[in-house]
Design a protein around this nucleic acid. Structure first.
Lengths: 342, 342
DNA sequence: CACGTTCCCGACATCGTTTGCACAAATTAA
DNA sequence: TTAATTTGTGCAAACGATGTCGGGAACGTG
């Protein structure tokens, strides 16, 4: 099958390309009969407008760019599903870029997306991203931008996030109610919004229950597969070692579970463990992992909806707001000291 | 920051756009001094060529398209990582499309990718895809195409796959050596290449060990979350019910584990279970899941390498071949009848 | 009959870049 | 000195689609 252009239709019908163009987009100033013939011919040749040419002209590309740290991550892959679902329904294509947690690549991705003329951008910041100049440029160019999950307070745009404070508060309070007092918090880079909010929730719960905050129990990092173990060893060597772990990400929760088991620390007898995760096999783990679940798919959906709303009503600026979606605490064996039914 | 074009440079320097264009790409027919001035100016304005315009011209876009069933899948997300790594090293951008296991969307994705002028296409077929006409078109347009994992025998292109036969053979033989005789095989759509190869490996192992093949023990399907349970009930009601399950995908392995546990069937005492999966938490499950591991990342890498080789040596056609990568059998508690050390 | 409208439609410029060709100036050869 | 060649540069077309003009035909109105 060839690719036909508006010219082929014009030649076939012996009319000009402008007429074809207008007929195709149903302009009122084209004769109904001409329109019909053009439509028929386009149908017959299986004509598809060339989006590249359209983009060159500066019109809408009906594509939205999604830039996020990495796809191989339960939270993000589910968020993408949410985004795709909405975008598809509203007639947009989704182009996905991974920053691989690298600032440099994030900047390159933004440039790619801009120069491929996406109609809008959906982003979750890389963990290396400290300044947001590259996003300021996006705004300067008047390209709609919505941030989700990993957002920046320096940017005045619509954001969609989970209720990180509430989730962390609930998790910590749950551990406290189970009688834990030395709760370690393993989390990611300190400058990320989600890190700060979760830490705040953790501290608030401690305070409410009269447990003193001990910064020795909080660890930040990227935590590759081999780093979790040593860090746990370090924590367990403290004068009063932790009796519970609250981790702030998927990878940390799994890495922590693995490391604790390798060290023959029993969960939840010796220490209990709760994660902030979207792992869909959390209940099949050994022991079943208590988690704070973030509605990843819903976050993706809402972010996509806001973005497309902005794209389509570009004239009348939509209000900028931060949408905060509740999280859910699911208690399983890894934090339950009573009899376990599984 | 504005976006500058070749015209701006030309105006700034009082020369023509053609000269700028040629200077930028280092044409031998441009004065060294002119070149230097152009380079300096481009540098100063932070000039970036507009890829859209380049694509319109029909030249390389330095982007490759990846079309696969879904991202939220351990195998595919790891494969994407492999693809990204290679593409990035060789200076290509990756544009990802999900077919969501829908033929219709796969076709739309192919069209999108073609009209966005990707330099090549990497694909894993949706489970609905029975004919490959839409891919024939890709070849007709002379766009390099490499298939991975879910491939079609009807297409004469380079393919990168796991050794599905060998993996299934090893898994089945392992179960037989553990004394199992009624091995159920839960698999996906029968027309997919991977399904057929795995089934063949399964049969070959049975045959080698003198166990008769019973087609009642083989089930095909898409298996949504609620379908695995009823199917297991059905199998367990057979005159001689299965004493082992061999599943052909990530989702099936997890779904099966969940369903078996809900039914209080003990693993591996009552039935044993082995999966064909890339689940990175397989060893943390309860019980730890034996698996045939496919080197997903390596498959992605090899596929990307082959594709880029083809793109860059388009003139001299590279040999078409099928690369088959060995799988690895990892035995864990879910199939081990002896004492379990986990 | 002259002029204004309306209705359809085509010519042409445009977006940013590459490229074939022409052409002037400078250099070399005869 | 004249002709031929080389060197460096600009003009214009092309890619596919849109949009601004403006023009021809048919009609109505004074």
């Amino acid at each position: 099958m060839e690719t036909y252009t508006i010219k082929d239709i014009a030649r076939e019908l012996g009319i000009s390309t402008s007429t074809v163009s207008r007929a195709l987009r149903g302009s009122y100033e084209i004769n109904a009969e001409t329109k019909r013939r053009v439509m028929e011919c386009a149908e017959r040749l299986n004509y598809r407008p060339n989006p590249i040419a359209l983009s060159l002209k500066g019109s809408a590309s009906r594509a939205i760019g999604v830039i996020l740290p990495q796809i191989a991550n339960y939270f993000f892959s589910q968020a993408i599903n949410g985004i795709e679902a909405i975008a598809y329904n509203r007639g947009y294509h989704v182009i996905i870029f991974q920053s691989q947690e690298s600032y440099e690549r994030e900047v390159a991705n933004v440039q790619q997306a801009m120069s491929r003329k996406v109609d809008g951008l959906l982003m979750s910041l890389s963990s290396e991203t400290a300044d947001v100049e590259h996003l300021q440029e996006v705004l300067d160019r008047n390209v709609p931008l919505v941030l989700f999950d990993r957002v920046s307070s320096e940017l005045n745009v619509t954001k969609v996030v989970a209720d990180n404070f509430g989730g962390a508060f609930a998790a910590t309070e749950h551990l406290l109610q189970e009688g834990r007092r030395r709760i370690a918090h393993l989390t990611i880079q300190p400058w990320l919004s989600i890190t700060q909010e979760r830490l705040a929730g953790y501290r608030a719960a401690l305070e409410k229950h009269g447990v003193e905050f001990d910064e020795n129990l909080v660890r930040y990092g990227t935590f590759g597969p081999d780093e979790v173990g040593p860090m746990i060893d370090e924590l367990m060597r403290l004068d009063t070692p932790p009796d519970a772990f609250f981790t702030a990400s998927d990878r940390l929760a799994v890495g922590c579970l693995q490391a604790l088991r390798q060290r023959h620390l029993h969960i939840p007898e010796d220490v209990s463990l709760i994660g902030f995760t979207n792992l869909n096999v959390a209940d099949l783990l050994n022991p079943a992992l208590s988690t704070v679940v973030q509605p990843a798919q819903e976050i993706g959906q809402l972010a996509a909806e806001r973005l497309i709303d902005q794209i389509e009503r570009k004239h009348r600026a939509l209000p900028i707001e931060t949408v905060r979606i509740p999280t859910e605490l699911i208690v399983r064996s890894s934090t339950r000291t009573e009899v376990v039914n599984q």
